[in-house]
Design a protein around this nucleic acid. Structure first.
Lengths: 246, 246
DNA sequence: TTCCGCTCTTGATCAGGATCAAGGCGGCTC
DNA sequence: GAGCCGCCTTGATCCTGATCAAGAGCGGAA
């Protein structure tokens, strides 16, 4: 893990900078951010922080993917969050991490030291309002996952996960998912299972089933093409109006 | 549903008032709140708002219990939130409700008209910071539920729900749950099933099983006594360190 | 009082996904 | 190339919780 301090213009995808601070273009806020901000890089599979550890920073994801997960006594684990670029990690006011955070691909975090960040939060209402908005979006996503975990069949769960990944990948490029669009699954079968509350065997079987049904096409094990996006949505069991705004 | 406008001191349990505004004791903020604030009462079982409906207010729960739930195409429903007194309902900036909200007991909401509330939010950073804190707590609770829904057995789910209800009831009275403490289940078996991703038959069976095992005692169908709180916690499957801070 | 309706309990059977097990496919190092 | 390892697929069997079904308990209304 490396720490690289940033010059003033180098962080392109950080939502704090771009959506909250830059929108105001207050020069001294920018300078203050630059004094407390730095990058960290993690290799695939590397833990970022374990639940219960002290976290002296908050961060936003610049590149790569991280997962949040929780574990029961006997080792059963459940993933509870998926952090893609522009997502925020850490919580103002909380010192210990509540979840295990793991890099599932090469991960770059744009970090802010906790104390100055909290000070900035108090002094810059636009940032805490932006943070509130992002947190509310995360809460909606978590509740959508509760529906998936509690009430959907294995097949519906897989279709839902594929839909969500396709939508988020598309959203990063500021477009809607289209027929024929492809993407790379950022998760192993096991990680998908941890996310969906299934076993990896069931995940594998259901992906094969969706492939056999022509809902998706697979190139290798990870590269997915969706010939008809509406057909995939039909498999999710969701109300056809598309559910929550994402 | 009645609307009753409030005088300046009548809302005792509203977190906005007490934790954000009153702590500062800014007289004009208080007055502004009083101009935009009013009560609504709902009978048990009455819907507060349906998903997709326009919501012209945000509110905090003063008394009673409300549930948030989502429904799939074919009618399967999943509860995704449980609102107890002091919890917040509604989201600044969002006009349509994302979930069905239902009163499960006689419910009193302390409402704020949306527009003035949002104006106040911009002008009063302490409130949006308080709201951020509450939202982060809700997010943690939602993620704890994801673990329950995804990885726990029926028996562990029931034990977890009882634990959570006991803890929240105790927290409202600012104390920790103790051995021998009792509480009234605020939910029907069906509502518990909707919360846990089970059927009502399974809920009933598991409650009977916990009773037979001496983990809980039942008086009637709703009144629960926990002779040994640690024994109940043991049934949840959670790590013994108690999980998330509540 | 009787009847009705709602909630809950319990039993019998079924099925979806877990578990156990074996093997395939790349990619890697030696 | 051979061997190994991580990831994935597929098959056989098992088990937990769903489903279908019947009836108990209880409160409210006529």
């Amino acid at each position: 893990m490396n720490e690289i301090f940033l010059d003033q213009r180098s962080c392109q995808s950080c939502p704090i900078r771009h959506r909250a601070v830059c929108s105001k273009c207050e020069p001294d806020e920018l300078q203050m951010l630059d004094r407390i901000k730095y990058y960290r890089h993690y290799d695939p599979g590397q833990p970022v922080v374990w639940a219960g550890d002290e976290m002296d920073f908050v961060a936003s994801v610049v590149a790569g993917i991280a997962t949040l997960s929780q574990t029961l006594e006997d080792g059963r684990t459940q993933m509870v969050g998926l952090l893609l670029p522009s997502d925020f990690l850490g919580r103002p006011g909380r010192v210990t991490a509540p979840y295990d955070v793991t890099a599932t691909s090469a991960l770059t975090l744009c970090c802010f030291r906790r104390k100055p960040f909290e000070k900035m939060l108090v002094e810059t209402p636009s940032i805490s309002q932006r943070l509130l908005e992002m947190t509310l979006d995360e809460l909606d996503a978590a509740r959508q996952w509760m529906l998936i975990l509690g009430r959907k069949t294995a097949r519906e769960k897989i279709a839902s996960l594929l839909t969500i990944i396709a939508q988020r990948e598309a959203a990063l490029q500021r477009r809607a998912p289209t027929n024929g669009s492809s993407f790379e699954l950022p998760l192993t079968r096991e990680a998908m299972a941890d996310y969906l509350g299934l076993t990896l065997e069931t995940v594998s079987r259901q992906i094969s089933a969706l492939k056999r049904a022509g809902i998706i096409e697979l190139e290798g094990k990870r590269f997915v093409t969706v010939p008809d996006f509406a057909a995939l949505m039909d498999e999710t069991g969701d109300d056809s109006d598309g559910g929550l705004p994402v």
